[in-house]
């Protein structure tokens, strides 16, 4: 605590905060108040509340909800089973490795897999069904997004499950709780923080996906991210793009408020171990 001299080391760090954390947010807010000619206007905001943008926001939330839900359904049992394995840390690393491989390449793989002549269609035809159009459908989009987010969902849930004191489960079983009751009343409530972090790690990026929508959903799905990208880089309407960005930031804070860890609760569970 007496390391006064160290405060100097904060100078470049503070400059970074000022330039790359605070200034960008202020600039986005500032630009959201400008029209195409650089005049102040609130039109962008009134535009956002027209049916076009509201529908897009709603559909973006719907897709993010589906992606988060499916990721959770796949990840929770997987994380649970991994905690039961002998070399669980090694298996966890194996789950995480795919998340380190370039996102673009993983997405590109599905162009081949879901393609008209890809392995899925080969299988479909082998069992005597007609060729299916898989690429450029909602299903393909949600599947690829879930595929990409699974490691990010498994990791926090695994950590929460791993910290869970097994004696609590044994106690519940000894006291006559069924497997399902133990899961519902003991395991899930005590790992809620892991679930929340996972949901946060998946839901927010899902709202802002834009590369996958283009490559896999072929512009069928428009998320908030796609809309921002389009406004900034295609139509060059930075004002409208910034307005959508402002709303995305607001949504992000609301989601974080709901999924934030409750510190007190966490420390209490920690002490029980």
């Amino acid at each position: 605590m007496r390391r006064k001299g160290n405060l100097f080391s904060l100078i470049p760090y503070y400059i970074w905060i000022l330039l790359f954390v605070i200034a960008p947010i202020l600039l986005v807010v500032y630009y959201s108040l400008l029209d195409l000619n650089g005049h102040f206007t609130l039109n962008n905001y009134t535009n956002f509340f027209t049916s076009v943008y509201l529908k897009m926001t709603l559909s973006s939330f719907w897709y993010a909800f589906l992606i988060t839900l499916f990721s959770l359904f796949v990840s929770y049992p997987a994380a649970y089973l991994i905690t039961k394995l002998k070399h669980k840390q090694l298996w966890l690393i194996l789950i995480i490795i795919p998340s380190w491989i370039n996102l673009l390449l993983k997405t590109y793989a599905f162009i081949g897999i879901f393609g008209n002549k890809g392995p899925i269609n080969a299988f479909v035809q082998a069992i005597g069904l007609p060729n299916q159009q898989i690429l450029f459908t909602d299903f393909a989009f949600v599947f690829v997004a879930v595929y990409i987010f699974i490691p990010f969902m498994i990791l926090p849930i695994f950590n929460a499950l791993d910290k869970l004191n097994p004696a609590l489960i044994d106690a519940a079983r000894d006291l006559g709780a069924s497997k399902f009751t133990t899961l519902r009343r003991i395991i899930i409530p005590l790992t809620m923080n892991g679930i929340k972090s996972g949901v946060q790690a998946v839901f927010i990026p899902s709202l802002s996906l834009f590369m996958i929508t283009r490559l896999i959903a072929g512009n069928r799905v428009i998320t908030l991210g796609t809309a921002i990208e389009e406004q900034f880089l295609v139509t060059q309407n930075w004002g409208m793009g910034s307005t959508i960005a402002v709303f995305l930031i607001i949504f992000m804070f609301i989601i974080m408020l709901f999924t934030g860890e409750k510190r007190k609760g966490a420390s209490r569970h920690g002490k029980t171990q």
């Binding site: 330039l19 790359f20 954390v21 200034a23 960008p24 947010i25 600039l27 986005v28 630009y31 946060q200 927010i204 990026p205 709202l207 802002s208 834009f210 908030l224 991210g225 921002i228 990208e229 900034f232 930075w238 793009g241 910034s242 960005a245 995305l248 930031i249 992000m252 974080m256």
Partner: peptide, 16 residues
């Protein structure tokens, strides 16, 4: 910046 979606970081840095 860790929790911000990439699109927001990209767009705001572009403005900056």
């Amino acid at each position: 910046l860790i929790v911000s979606p990439d699109v927001i970081i990209g767009a705001s840095f572009l403005i900056l």
